[in-house]
């Protein structure tokens, strides 16, 4: 394959990201960096899914942490209560999330704009409240510990192992998202964002497409939630809470709505930033707020699309 053909390849962004995943650890001075890297990829996975829903189909969700919560508690409760292997619980959690998304999405995806926002917000809160109050299963507000992931004889521990697992899964999720965009479903979602009426008149079953992407994005979030729980070894209902949902939305918007690469950038910024800001102690929150505002005011298209626009102008 010539260089030209490679650069024009549909999967070029994914190849570049895969290269980054592989090369990055060469510059990691300590295990702590693997930990941050793993967190970035885990969040980025959820954000890619949410971006399919928000950035492409134009449907807001302020309750996506609810699906992360379902994924997280699946790998926490499953092994303890039913003795099921973690990986099986991860799949079961993803299926459960998809099913819940299907059931919840059918009625609420008819809502538009801010009404959809408040409905999804309500859904997320419901999940968090159930997780908080069903202490017999979930350990209540203090949360519960999560058994380590075991794959056959290999007990996965250590940040570097999780870095590779999360990185690989992210690349897979990324490729699936790219695939979707270059397909009838992807074009239909894109069309729905701009004009539902025109989409319907062209034969697109808008309700069904919205439901499809809602289920897909819930599945992404669920897998990310399972990973986060297995990686941290402990979870609390906060992992399904409103602030987590907002964080996911912020990552989407910051990286760039509709930019799949942006999902990684948005996740990276909002995972790394608080780590850096801890050196400012009590000013941490105020600075975080200021930086979020600043990004949104000055790069309102999101980081990646804004940079891409600058490049495009510069090449002209």
């Amino acid at each position: 394959m010539s260089l030209r053909a490679l650069l024009d390849n549909r999967l070029m962004p994914a190849i570049a990201i895969a290269a980054i995943v592989i090369i990055l650890p060469l510059f990691f001075p300590s295990a702590y960096y693997y930990r941050i890297g793993a967190l970035v990829f885990i969040f980025a996975l959820a954000v890619v899914g949410l971006n399919l829903l928000m950035g492409f189909a134009g449907q807001v969700s302020l309750g996506h942490a609810g699906f992360m919560g379902i994924g997280a508690y699946s790998v926490a409760i499953g092994p303890v209560a039913f003795g099921a292997p973690s990986w099986l619980c991860l799949f079961a959690g993803a299926i459960l999330s998809g099913t819940v998304a299907f059931a919840v999405g059918r009625p609420i995806l008819r809502l538009k704009g801010h009404y959809l926002a408040v409905a999804t917000l309500g859904f997320g809160l419901l999940v968090a409240i159930v997780l908080t109050n069903e202490a017999g299963w979930t350990g209540g507000p203090d949360g519960m510990s999560v058994p380590k992931l075991a794959l056959f004889e290999w007990r996965v521990r250590g940040s570097d192992a999780w870095y590779w697992i999360a990185g690989t899964t992210f690349v897979v999720g990324f490729v699936l998202a790219l695939n979707l965009m270059d397909s009838p479903t992807g074009r239909a979602l894109h069309a729905i964002h701009d004009s539902e009426i025109a989409a319907r008149v062209l034969g697109i079953d808008v309700a069904r497409k919205k439901l499809t992407v809602f289920v897909i994005s819930a599945t992404y979030a669920s897998v990310a939630g399972s990973y986060l729980a297995l990686f941290n070894g402990h979870i609390t209902p906060d992992s399904a809470g409103f602030l987590r949902s907002i964080e996911l939305v912020a990552m989407v918007v910051l990286g760039g709505m509709g930019s799949i690469v942006g999902s990684l950038v948005g996740a990276a910024v909002l995972v790394v930033l608080p780590q850096v800001l801890t050196t400012f102690h009590e000013y941490e929150q105020a600075l975080l707020g200021l930086i979020v505002m600043g990004f949104m005011i000055f790069l309102r298209q999101g980081i990646v699309p804004s940079i891409a626009a600058v490049f495009a102008r510069w090449r002209k």
Partner: peptide
């Protein structure tokens, strides 16, 4: 459509 319904992002 009289009031255009273009997919303007595409």
């Amino acid at each position: 459509f009289q009031n255009l319904q273009i997919f303007s992002r595409m």
